[in-house]
Design a protein around this nucleic acid. Structure first.
Lengths: 180, 180
DNA sequence: CGCAAAAATTGACTTATGGTAAGAAAACTA
DNA sequence: TAGTTTTCTTACCATAAGTCAATTTTTGCG
């Protein structure tokens, strides 16, 4: 990101750096969402809980990713997602509305954010296509490639709930892989 | 979209309106992608073909949606998607690079496009969460709500390949629904 | 309209993944 | 480090969805 010093200063002025412990919750399902987070270290995830109480992970956020409940922010509804810290992490916290205001002051930020969104859209498109065409085992292999050593931060059931399978199925897939 | 007349004129100058017949292909898997399309009437879809020859629909685009192979455009690779016209449609064709250049001339366009991307991200997040937590029958119901009377334009196997099930499974789901 | 091609349905069978429950292993915590 | 809790694994069975093939229905074309 290339910003003028003034823009960077403005960003600092509306943000707050936070150190998080494993298990801390930044956004909770059902509450009002005002904040968005830029991850500088560690690992967080966003997930929803369905009517049967099962968790489904939407996103793992590691260094340089943004995380929040964008569904809630853009539709002005209460959070459907929970954002939690998976391991000792550092994030920069922004008020989403304030951050949005930066575009009028510093138009260069708009393009930074547009590129970010484009990158994000591409990764979501790829994820959907993978979900449509790959088996659970293939999705797991790909996941390991895309998030190398994320397993240091995550529990297996986090990964399973991201891949769209049960933790038991993931365990069986891992057992199969180990055999070979 | 609120644009100054100059901006609108510029848009016209770099675009071309096209009328498409059912079955026409705008982007073909394996080819270079230079264009992006804004749909003003009708219905198109983008899909990929997997190693077993099966189709997987990424997107249905109706009025006011954009469609292209954004994976290819943003990673500068060859198309992994095919974009085809499902029924008599009208689109406005842009050269993606040229359209990108508009941001330096007309900054207001940047914010229009950012909002579009945000909307798109939200819809992709929802789709992923639905795929993770809903059964095939529930996904089909939701699809019908979200795309009312899209069935005028689509074949059942298009919908099945969007939902991530086979055409036969969709047929059984429809038979079950009809019973009730 | 009538025919051919494409799409949808249906039935019988297979397979991938889910559910449950118990025990083993790993990760915390005092 | 011992003890407790959480997570992971495994076995056995259940189920949703896939596969293949035959048949019916719909669509599009000459």
């Amino acid at each position: 990101m290339h910003l003028r010093p003034e823009a960077e200063e403005f960003l600092y002025s509306i943000s707050k750096e936070k150190t998080l412990h494993k298990g801390e919750v930044l956004i909770r399902q059902g509450q009002v969402v005002k904040k968005t987070f830029f991850v500088t270290a560690g690992c967080l995830r966003s997930y929803c809980i369905d009517k049967n109480g099962k968790e489904h992970t939407l996103l793992f956020a590691i260094k340089d990713w943004w995380i929040s409940d964008y569904i809630a922010i853009h539709t002005d509804e209460l959070a459907t997602l929970t954002v939690e810290c998976l391991s000792e992490s550092k994030v920069i916290e922004f008020n989403a509305k304030e951050l949005d205001g930066i575009h009028t002051r510093f138009p260069e930020f708009e393009s930074y954010q547009r590129h970010n969104l484009e990158r994000h859209v591409v990764s979501l498109h790829k994820r959907i296509l993978n979900q449509l065409q790959l088996s659970a085992a293939e999705r797991y292999d790909l996941f390991l490639k895309q998030y190398p050593d994320i397993e240091r931060h995550t529990r297996n059931y986090h990964i399973a709930s991201f891949l769209g399978i049960t933790q038991e199925s993931l365990s069986r897939i891992r057992a199969e892989k180990a055999k070979k």
